[in-house]
């Protein structure tokens, strides 16, 4: 595909799909932006023009700043737990041991559990202050059980989400580890590098690209965490575990306010883009090499 002719033909051939994809993206986005300037409650039509009122209402809400902070804490917390945990687990799983196949499948399986289900399991079977496993453990060692979801709601959610995403990180990092050249490791061993030096100078640099992929993909999904919050803390107590998606839901969809929902959607898109911008600045250079 090096010649001018081939380039032209290629452009012509892919143009239908590009146009379709563009329309697919532009039309809903345009509609959303349009709606965001309307006062449009589904229960009390017809819609009427209000300008930026939806936006000011959103941005001045006392829950907005806490929700923004919570979102960032949630994303960062889960990212840290999953990448660090993922690297450690991948290192473990990359070793030869008996029952490797089964263990690998077990490690991957949380990823297949639906968020609502996993959140309910965590809420009722682990974190429940009376019946939960943790409560039993606490009592077994003579401690007062903790009501995780009301005393440390955001941390609890971070743990649940991290649990669900850990397998993903582990899987990606494990495949990267398996492609690490064993002769390089042996060369380093002969060069006098100990275990830690080999990890720092060989393994980590080898993993940077995969870590970048893990961080980027997870961020996209973590910005949109909703089900876990909905079925466990409902954003509370207060705004303690409200993130941006849950905040938008609370403020608009719960009131059947389509205009407000659209404004929230636009704000979420902008926040996501800001995060993406900083993220790409920070780690994007790892992708090309």
């Amino acid at each position: 595909m090096a010649t001018q002719r081939a380039h032209k033909a290629a452009r012509l051939m892919i143009s239908p799909s590009v146009i379709l994809l563009l329309a697919w993206m532009i039309i809903p986005l345009g509609t959303t932006i349009y709606f965001s300037f309307l006062r449009y409650n589904i229960l009390t039509p017809p819609p009427s023009w209000t300008g930026v009122e939806n936006y000011t209402y959103f941005l001045t809400d006392p829950a907005f700043i806490p929700a923004l902070v919570n979102t960032l804490v949630l994303v960062l917390g889960v990212l840290i737990i999953t990448t660090v945990g993922g690297i450690l687990l991948a290192l473990l799983l990359n070793m030869d041991f008996w029952g490797q196949g089964i263990v690998r499948i077990l490690v991957i399986s949380p990823f297949f559990v639906m968020p609502t289900v996993s959140a309910l399991v965590w809420k009722n079977m682990f974190m429940h202050p009376v019946n939960g496993l943790f409560a039993h453990l606490f009592r077994a060692v003579g401690l007062q059980p903790v009501d995780f979801l009301s005393t440390m709601p955001l941390l609890s959610i971070i743990i649940m989400v991290a649990w669900a995403w850990l397998p993903f990180a582990t899987l990606i990092l494990l495949t990267a580890l398996q492609s690490l050249d064993s002769e390089q490791m042996e060369a380093a061993e002969m060069d006098g590098a100990g275990w830690l030096s080999r990890f720092i100078y060989l393994t980590l640099p080898h993993l940077t690209r995969s870590i970048t992929v893990v961080v980027l993909i997870q961020t996209i999904f973590l910005l949109a965490v909703f089900a876990e919050i909905y079925v466990t803390t409902a954003g509370g107590p207060g705004y303690a575990s409200t993130n941006i998606p849950f905040f938008i839901y609370n403020l608009s969809l719960k009131q059947f306010d389509a205009g407000m929902g659209a404004a929230g959607g636009v704000i979420a898109v902008i926040i996501a883009n800001i995060v993406a911008f900083f993220l790409m600045r920070a780690v994007g250079k790892n992708l090309e090499l």
Binding site: D181, E183, Q184, E186, A187, A188, E189, M190, D191, G192, A193, Y201, L202, P205, H206
Partner: peptide, 19 residues
Amino acid sequence: SPAKRGLAMVFQSYALYPH
């Protein structure tokens, strides 16, 4: 251990550190 033997090895794949 390999490091303690005072030997140096050149591998078939060169085994250079790529980064």
